[in-house]
Simulated scan of single mutants.
Amino acid sequence: MRVYVPLTLSGLARLHTARELGPAPLTAYAVTPALREWYLSGNEEELEYAALSRAAAASLRLVATDPAVARRRVVVAAEVPDRVAVADPDLALSAESLGEVRLTEPVPVVWLAAVHVDAEEAAADIRAAADAVGAADQGDDDARFTVDGAADHELLWYGVQELDRLL
């Protein structure tokens, strides 16, 4: 199963050093039955993009919680055995949790398929969005607009073999 794990650049550096993502459990995003049902008209590629986008939003929240990390979203795509990714049926009831899965094992680097990272040019908008997350959660429409603006930046695709260059 293809999963998308939200990280920060610091988390990506730890993954590179440790040669695995962990410890488990880890939160990731995937094309779950609930996500598939929500996007009735989407083909598989569109559903994968929706899962990636949800992971990017979760990465923004990770950036928002740590002022010391670089202001860029990071998502790691991995192919994990189906037994490792568990969808909680209770989470499927919430629109915010669509596609969310729990990874029950650490993810070794050999399972990684790609790395998605914001371009450096996105840093100012990602910083503004990270700063606005709390207010957006409290219902501030201007803050919500700023947070939603982060999605205007497409994450760049990198091969796993490019980790050294990225870091």
Score class of each variant (00 low, 15 high):
A130S: 09
G11D: 04
V110F: 12
Y49T: 12
Y158M: 11
E37H: 10
E154Q: 15
P81H: 07
Y158Q: 10
S53Q: 09
L15N: 06
A58E: 08
Y158G: 10
S10F: 01
D164I: 02
A58N: 04
V160N: 08
Y29A: 01
A128P: 02
V147E: 02
V31W: 01
L21W: 05
D164T: 10
A85N: 04
V31K: 01
T17Q: 15
S41K: 13
V84H: 00
Y29N: 03
T8G: 05
V5G: 02
G22A: 13
S94G: 00
V5A: 00
G99E: 03
R73T: 09
S59T: 08
A28N: 00
R19E: 15
Q161K: 15
E44P: 06
D131Y: 05
R14T: 09
H153R: 04
A24L: 02
A130N: 04
P81K: 08
V3M: 03
W111P: 02
L40M: 09
R144P: 00
A28S: 04
L7Q: 12
T65A: 15
L112F: 07
G149Q: 08
L167D: 12
A57E: 12
T65L: 14
V147K: 05
R19S: 13
A68T: 15
R61W: 00
A78P: 03
V69F: 04
S41F: 11
P81T: 03
V110C: 07
P25W: 11
T27S: 11
T8S: 12
D118M: 10
D66V: 10
D90H: 08
P6Q: 00
E121L: 14
E20N: 03
R2F: 11
D82M: 07
P33S: 05
W157E: 14
L155C: 11
A114E: 12
A34L: 03
L167A: 13
D88P: 00
E120N: 12
V31Y: 04
L9Q: 11
L9M: 13
A51M: 01
V133P: 00
V76S: 06
E162M: 12
A123V: 03
V86I: 15
V147G: 05
P6A: 05
R144I: 05
Q161I: 11
E37P: 02
L52D: 02
S41L: 15
A150C: 07
V117I: 15
E45P: 00
R83K: 13
Y4W: 14
R19L: 11
V115W: 09
A95C: 08
S53G: 14
V147H: 06
A24R: 07
L163F: 11
A58P: 04
A150S: 15
W38P: 02
A57C: 09
E162R: 13
E162L: 11
